[in-house]
């Protein structure tokens, strides 16, 4: 694709690069500058504070729960959607995307209506002795809900593409369904699954609206990293807000890097098995 260097072409490239940099790179650089403006020691000192510790630990717990639940249930849902034909399948398929279309704030509101002080399901929850609203189970529920579509949407197309031939062959040779899943299906979907998990984790780290509403955001108890940043801003604790925000961005960038690697791996895997539809 060798072409003469046209002035129009250079201008278009310049516009695109300037637009994306002004929107993403410059604000990110400003945040980094803000966090380190008072020196590395002050930056590091933020991470020794107990409220920062507990906020980061709680975010880690949320990510863990969301990833675990959505890996298992998401793969199962993708399986059902691609392997079974049943009435209501199209409906289920549409419902999976609902969390993308609903604002996190609304998710928080719904959970509060269900499990809050006068919630519809609160009697059941208290009969079981679990506190959901204003405690970690409600926050985990919110995080899991908003990240629900990722694994399904990444795994379903892969399942569709690999078909059932190899699975049927394994059954014919006497493998149990469980053995077939772990020895045949799982290895084929692993890159798609890993990609879905990375997306889930990235989104779970950044979840804010739903978790803030259902948790009440009590410092040191139900405050996640994003809620901490919000409170720190309200309290004019700029250094604390900037430092934790930098930690969150770092985690996101690492996950994004992992996803980039996974994308390549997946394309490589597609090419070696000769599957078409690979974008190069």
């Amino acid at each position: 694709m060798r072409r003469r260097l046209r002035p129009g072409r250079v201008a278009l490239i310049a516009i695109a690069v300037t637009y994306v940099c002004a929107l993403v790179a410059v604000p990110a650089a400003a945040l980094l500058h803000g966090a380190f403006a008072e020196g590395l020691t002050r930056f590091a000192a933020v991470f020794t504070r107990p409220d920062v510790h507990s906020a980061l630990a709680l975010t880690a717990l949320m990510v863990l729960v969301a990833v675990l639940v959505n890996t298992i249930l998401g793969t199962a849902t993708a399986w059902v959607l691609t392997r079974d034909r049943f009435r209501g399948r199209a409906l289920l398929n549409g419902l999976v995307d609902v969390p993308f279309a609903i604002s996190p704030v609304i998710v928080g509101l719904v959970l509060l209506e269900l499990f809050g002080r006068k919630g519809l399901l609160t009697p059941f929850a208290s009969a079981l002795g679990v506190q959901i609203a204003f405690a970690w189970p409600g926050m985990a529920l919110a995080t899991t809900f908003v990240t629900l579509p990722f694994v399904v949407r990444e795994v379903a197309p892969v399942l569709e593409e690999i078909g059932t031939d190899q699975e049927s062959a394994a059954y014919t040779l006497g493998a149990s369904p469980l053995v077939t899943f772990f020895r045949v299906t799982l290895p084929s979907i692993r890159w798609g699954l890993a990609y879905g998990i990375s997306l889930t984790a990235a989104r779970a780290i950044g979840e804010f609206g739903a978790v803030l509403i259902i948790s009440g955001g009590v410092a040191g108890r139900t405050e996640t990293a994003t809620s901490f940043v919000y409170r720190a801003l309200e309290d004019r604790d700029d250094l604390g807000a900037h430092a934790v925000a930098v930690a969150l961005v770092t985690a996101s960038v690492i996950l994004l890097g992992a996803m980039e690697v996974l994308k390549r791996r997946r394309l490589g895997a597609d090419r070696s098995t000769g599957a078409d539809g690979a974008e190069v």
Binding site: V26, P27, A28, A30, L31, H33, G34, A202, I205, G206, E207, F208, T226, V229, Y230, L233, A241, H242, A245, L248, V249, S252, V253, L255, L256
Partner: peptide, 14 residues
């Protein structure tokens, strides 16, 4: 990948 709250914070800082 960036938490939206952090995106807002970036714009305030800038």
């Amino acid at each position: 990948a960036i938490p939206t709250l952090v995106a807002g914070l970036m714009l305030v800082v800038l």
